[in-house]
Design a protein around this nucleic acid. Structure first.
Length: 439
DNA sequence: CAATTCGGACGATCAAGTAC
DNA sequence: TACTTGATCGTCCGAATTGT
């Protein structure tokens, strides 16, 4: 029954349209239309409870949550699927005048269209409008999957250009299957629905179907299609995800190192300016002692991280099966901490019987090239990782890089910082420029 | 027994498609 | 451009559940 709360609110008298004389086709002689407020407050909406126009509303006052009694902006409407009426055969737009049958007539105002609505409802699935309000399981599932783009939130880290394969927005095998089914079924003009009744009625109406259904093939083919192709996709995607996850780990660490070095360099340059002399001439004095000239040496934590990273890479490139088992144990600890959440998913995704041996490093190179990032990592990282093939050491610039000098990577930052803009009379630009630009 | 939660029916609104 | 209409989003009833 009604809860005491709603009883307390006592909305009833004018909550319903007192115009019952309209249509009573669904039986009830006094079928009153439910009136609803234009906008319910956040609290009421959350509680699925009745609200009113006042702020704070009566319910919030009563429950003592006036603070949350605020309006929430309406969501912008999004069409998740292409309009369905093509698939069902209904057409939008002004109703065609049908002289002979008398079935249709020129639509006039609102009431006319309403009548028409009910007329149509006789032989269609549209009953009382409630069916139309339902969301199909397919659309729901496809929209619910969320991407976990693990962009770093820390301000000291740079944002990476996107080459995140997981942004395909598919997180599980089931998601993938559903998504695939969805797209496949979308491509058919045949109205797919999980609702057995609707399916039946759709199947029954052969004549209409023929009009807007084309090239469906046999249903058995469709079934097979739905099963086989996802398998292939699942496998590929799993590989991609695994590789991408490793990539993300590396990127995170490298970004940290980059940030660390940049900060160090800024400090060094600043202190140099403040001192009014060349850093090399006054070593060991005061602040300068604290901010020694940046070196190419990696901090200790990074060294250990990259050690495990290199092991991991060796595993990945040589023995994928082994990689999946070892990668979890030799996890690359992300000192940033914040980004750890999405970083390590997918490593276990490679199935034991996976025969497709992937050239991860090659793939990485390819990916980086595709996204316009130069293939260059810090020297020590290159040495640590032990994969010179995938790294480009400072001496080995690409032709593209030879054309534009290295410090280009650091420019956006330097533009914002007067100190960093100081004449580059200090040490030569670092050879540890990184493959990522600041955004 | 009161309070809270939440599934789902119903209402409002919007955007796409069509007739004129 | 006016109009229709399906889809989508919001409201809130009322049954179920939880707390005291």
């Amino acid at each position: 029954m009604s809860s005491p709360l709603t009883e307390d609110l006592c909305f009833s008298p004018d909550d319903y349209d007192d115009n019952p004389d309209q249509e009573d086709e669904d039986g009830g002689p006094n079928h009153k239309k439910r009136k609803q407020v234009k906008r319910a407050c956040f609290s009421c909406r959350k509680a699925h409870a009745r609200c009113d126009e006042e702020r704070p509303c009566r319910r919030c006052i009563r429950t003592g949550c006036e603070s949350t009694c605020v309006d929430v902006p309406r969501k912008k409407r999004v069409l998740k699927k292409p309009a369905k009426m093509e698939t069902v055969g209904l057409k939008r737009g002004r109703r065609r005048r049908l002289d002979e049958s008398g079935e249709g007539c020129e639509s006039g105002g609102e009431s006319d269209s309403k009548n028409f609505y009910f007329d149509v409802a006789e032989d269609e699935v549209l009953e009382g409008g409630s069916v139309a309000g339902k969301t199909t399981p397919l659309s729901a599932s496809s929209s619910s999957s969320s991407t976990s783009t693990s962009s770093t939130s820390s301000s000291s880290l740079t944002t990476v250009k996107k080459f995140d394969f997981t942004s395909i927005a598919i997180n599980t095998t089931e998601d993938l299957k559903l998504s695939w089914k969805d797209s496949l079924l979308d491509s058919m003009t045949f109205a797919h629905t999980d609702d057995a009744e609707a399916k039946e009625s759709a199947a029954g109406d052969k004549e209409e179907e023929a009009d807007f259904c084309f090239d469906l093939g046999k249903s058995s083919d469709d079934e097979r299609c739905l099963e086989e192709i996802p398998q292939e996709m699942v496998r590929e995607l799993t590989e991609l995800r695994s590789y991408n996850s490793t990539l993300q780990d590396m990127i995170k660490d490298v970004q940290q190192f980059n940030s660390y070095q940049r900060k160090k360099r800024r400090q060094w340059e600043l202190s140099k300016i403040n001192n009014g002399t060349s850093a090399s001439t006054t070593p060991g004095s005061g602040a300068l002692a604290a901010t020694a000239a940046p070196s190419d040496a990696l901090p200790q934590w990074l060294v250990s991280d990259f050690s495990s990273l290199s092991n991991k890479l060796v595993d990945l490139s040589s023995d994928p099966t082994h990689a999946s088992s070892t990668s979890s144990s030799s996890s690359i600890s992300s000192s940033a901490g914040s980004a750890g959440g999405a970083a390590h998913h997918g490593h276990g995704g490679r199935s034991a019987g996976d025969e497709g041996e992937m050239d991860y490093l090659g793939a990485w190179q390819q990916s980086m090239a595709n996204h316009g990032a130069p293939l260059q990592l810090p020297t020590q990282l290159a040495l640590l990782a032990g994969h010179h093939s995938m790294l480009q050491l400072p001496g080995q610039l690409t032709t593209q890089q030879q054309a534009q000098p290295q410090q280009q990577v650091q420019q956006p930052l330097a533009a914002n910082n007067a100190a960093a803009n100081a004449p580059q009379s200090g040490p030569a630009p670092f050879t540890t420029s990184l493959p990522f630009t600041e955004v």
